[in-house]
């Protein structure tokens, strides 16, 4: 089976966000594989181990994303592709990203493409379904279980807490929700092997794309922090008094119950 996992380099979830002059400060921050994409990589490896084939991890971004791709290779992916847009594009949006990724994938005959259901930075969750639509293949989002039998697939998706069982067929794009699996840590031999695994780097030119073809349709005009919250009130007195005061405050002052 020909399996692709889409991977984005994101800020570590532990990181505090600092905004300066309308931009996120990246200096000194730790970067990771977007946690939902980690589920995607893990699932891709498990599907390959069960059904045979090859896992390619694909990332879009700058040269720095090589580190996250090496991590995915160390987990067990076979090959990596980095589409480096650093020199070509100043700004891109989900339209641009999906266009570039689908241009790369269109002649690859992928049986299964796995992405995270959302990236924890931009948080739009658009790229997976957009790529599927551009490739003309079916997609299922926020999956928590995947079983493949020949060219049939049975999936469970999380729909706002409910579980939907879906039957469909390959080729297919799915997006991973938490609970799909427990991503493995790269082993030391895995890390050693990853250094020798192929990592191909491409630019827009290699995909016969011009900047105009992938020009963003939307524009970020400002980035800012949420307003600081004033310190709240910690209640005092007997617990039972505190509780009745709290319920009273929620009812009369905050008017939320």
């Amino acid at each position: 089976m020909n399996i692709y996992a889409l991977v984005k380099r994101t800020f570590d979830t532990e990181e505090k966000i600092v905004v300066k002059n309308g931009a996120i400060q990246e200096d000194g921050a730790e970067f990771i594989i977007n946690p939902y994409d980690e589920y995607a990589v893990e699932e891709a490896i498990q599907v390959r181990d069960e059904h045979g084939g090859e896992v390619t991890v694909l990332s879009l971004g700058g040269e720095d994303a090589e580190k996250q791709l090496r991590t995915a290779l160390a987990m067990g992916a076979d090959k990596a592709v980095l589409i480096n847009t650093e020199d070509d594009l100043d700004e891109m949006d989900e339209f641009s990203a999906a266009k570039i990724i689908s241009e790369y994938l269109k002649d690859k005959d992928a049986d299964l493409i796995i992405a995270g259901n959302v990236a924890i930075d931009g948080g739009s969750g658009q790229v997976g379904p957009r790529v599927a639509e551009l490739l003309g293949i079916n997609y299922v989002t926020t999956i928590t279980d995947l079983k493949i039998d020949g060219t049939s697939a049975t999936l469970v998706r999380d729909v706002e807490g409910d579980s939907e069982t879906i039957e469909t067929s390959l080729p297919l794009l799915v997006t991973a929700q938490q609970g799909l699996n427990e991503p493995r840590y790269p082993s030391l031999p895995g890390i050693m092997k990853a250094k020798k695994k192929p990592l191909e780097e491409l630019e827009l030119d290699d995909l016969d794309l011009d900047e105009e073809d992938v020009e963003a349709k939307t524009k970020t005009i400002d980035i800012f922090m949420p307003p600081e919250k004033a310190a709240g009130r910690v209640l005092e007195g007997d617990i039972s008094d505190q509780v009745s005061e709290l319920v009273n405050l929620l009812n009369k002052e905050a008017k939320v119950i």
């Binding site: 999906a98 948080g123 379904p129 957009r130 639509e133 551009l134 997609y139 706002e160």
Partner: peptide
């Protein structure tokens, strides 16, 4: 931006070759 909207909107945006400002 519900389960349905999240699943459907990128497909529509892709069909319409449009941008999509989510959430």
């Amino acid at each position: 931006h519900t389960a349905l909207g999240k699943d459907l909107s990128p497909k529509l945006a892709s069909k319409l070759s449009s941008g999509l400002i989510s959430d």
